[in-house]
């Protein structure tokens, strides 16, 4: 039976439906905004970018706790996350980021497939640190966007 289980496991690994799921390497920087020390700029075409000049495809979710933290002066960070399909995924990232001292608000948007953070005023988080924390949650970051480009018109009108 043990041999049968081993064979079953190997078959599962080699199943084409599973094998083709391995995604491409992370596509970093396409929506990256903001000018912060410690970011991973390897593939970022926007190094030295100006805040607010480049519109991001990733938008901060419309959530009261995010808006409140934004109003307090925190930097918005939005990360596209791979593999987030259920509330357990959201819970994992909420827990991981919720206990960090540098994060003022966190929200995982399953519809948008994004992790939404607003940092505490003056705090920043490098791409490397963000990717590592998402990995500890059990998931993977695709792209990261920061700054005013992640804000909707409604966000910017919020006092």
């Amino acid at each position: 039976m043990f041999r049968a289980l081993l064979i079953t496991g190997l078959l599962a690994v080699s199943t084409p439906a599973l094998a083709q799921m391995n995604p491409d390497a992370p596509k970093h920087g396409s929506a990256h905004m903001g000018d912060h020390a410690g970011h991973d700029h390897k593939a970022n075409p926007h190094m030295g970018h100006d805040m607010g000049e480049i519109e991001s495809a990733l938008k901060l979710s419309d959530q009261p706790e995010l808006a409140a933290a934004l109003a307090a002066g925190g930097e918005p960070v939005v990360a596209k996350v791979l593999g987030a399909v259920c509330d357990f995924c959201a819970k994992a990232m909420n827990k991981t980021f919720g206990k960090r001292d540098d994060v003022a608000a966190v929200y995982v948007d399953l519809d948008a497939k994004t992790l939404n953070l607003v940092m505490k005023p003056g705090a920043t988080m490098s791409d490397k640190a963000l990717r590592k924390a998402v990995k500890k949650s059990g998931y993977k970051v695709d792209t990261i966007a920061r700054g005013t480009g992640t804000l909707t018109q409604a966000d910017m009108l919020t006092p």
Binding site: G9, A12, V13, L18, M21, N22, P23, K80, L82, G83, A84, V85, C89, K113, G138, Y139, K140, D142
Partner: peptide, 17 residues
Amino acid sequence: WLAKRWFGEEHQANLYF
């Protein structure tokens, strides 16, 4: 042991022992 997790934009797959 989570031996492997496959990530996708719309899906997730896992293999555990």
